[in-house]
């Protein structure tokens, strides 16, 4: 497992990084934590001519409180995110899901922004970002953009970013009081990708579910927002198991789950329904049921 030869650049500012990326053209790849890119290089499934290492770009670092949202720098590692008091207080769903990513070694190298920009629908964070309506801040040589999560994930391993664009940070809205969260990850071993995952945030008031946000991992070529479930669940009493189960039976609507060694599509659809029910119940602070 030897990668083909490539050039390596390590810019020390965002401006230099964007310039280097523009100069290098289409065959350049941005290197963040390398946890997805390096295996592709080693398997010779990718042949970039230049790797632009973002590890020394200060503008991409850090996690900050910006009032109604927190801003997570693209190069914050998974471990930074899991340990961040700010993330745990304001957006605990992010921390919960990130803690399930791979293993400690990967979480110390892998980055929040890298995992999202890689846009693997089997990754845990894309569904979480979609459920929480995160906003992606990007920079190219000519402009900075804000891309809503609903528009960011375009296809398998493909985002709305242009080749010359770098992900700078992600804005995660604070949902405020009364919300509960859960990430239900179904995987065969502790270190394997989710067969199916469900990210859920539930707002309870007066004994009923006032609002709910649900998105699915590995149920299509992009993360999928479970809109039909969200509509059906609003106003339900989470203790009403029958109604909740019926609502969650719509979880696979609009999905096109993949077939692979771990699961066929019909089984993934079934899992999505069961796991969505469990995720919502857990987010509503009930036993999974």
């Amino acid at each position: 497992m030897i990668p083909a030869a490539f050039d390596y650049a390590r810019p020390s500012s965002l401006g230099d990084a964007v310039e280097a990326l523009t100069d290098a053209g289409e065959d350049a790849k941005v290197l963040a934590g390398g946890q997805s890119l390096l295996p592709l290089l080693r398997l010779r499934l990718a042949y970039p001519t230049v790797l632009i290492d973002l590890g020394r770009v200060p503008e991409l670092q850090g996690i900050a409180d910006e009032g109604d949202h927190i801003r997570i720098g693209a190069m914050a590692t998974h471990d930074d995110v899991v340990r961040s008091p700010l993330v745990n207080a304001a957006c605990p769903l992010i921390a919960l899901a990130t803690a399930t990513v791979a293993d400690p070694a990967v979480r110390h190298r892998g980055t929040f922004g890298g995992a999202l920009a890689h846009a693997d629908p089997a990754g845990d964070l894309p569904a979480v970002a979609l459920a929480l309506d995160c906003v992606f801040l990007t920079r190219s040589a000519s402009e900075g953009r804000e891309i809503p999560a609903a528009e960011f994930f375009v296809d398998y391993l493909e985002t709305a970013m242009d080749p010359g664009e770098i992900l700078v940070a992600v804005k995660v809205p604070k949902l405020g009081a009364g919300w509960g969260y859960h990430y239900e990850k179904f995987h065969r071993t502790a270190q394997s990708w989710a067969t199916v995952g469900v990210a859920a945030a539930v707002h309870r008031d007066d004994g009923t579910i006032q609002d709910v946000k649900v998105a699915l991992t590995n149920m299509g070529s992009t993360p999928v927002r479970a809109g039909a479930v969200e509509t059906a669940v609003r106003g339900l009493d989470p203790h009403d198991a029958t109604s909740l189960a019926a609502a969650c039976d719509q979880a696979d609507q609009g999905t096109s789950p993949p077939a692979d060694l771990h699961a066929q599509p019909d089984y993934r659809r079934h899992l999505a329904r069961v796991l969505t029910r469990r995720a919502i119940r857990r987010a509503a602070d009930l036993e999974p049921g």
Binding site: P39, L43, R188, T189, A190, Q191, S192, W193, L261
Partner: peptide, 16 residues
């Protein structure tokens, strides 16, 4: 052969 990596050929660890 489809199971050429440990992502496809699953080995349990102590966690499992």
């Amino acid at each position: 052969l489809l199971t050429t990596t440990m992502a496809d050929y699953l080995l349990p660890t102590a966690l499992d």
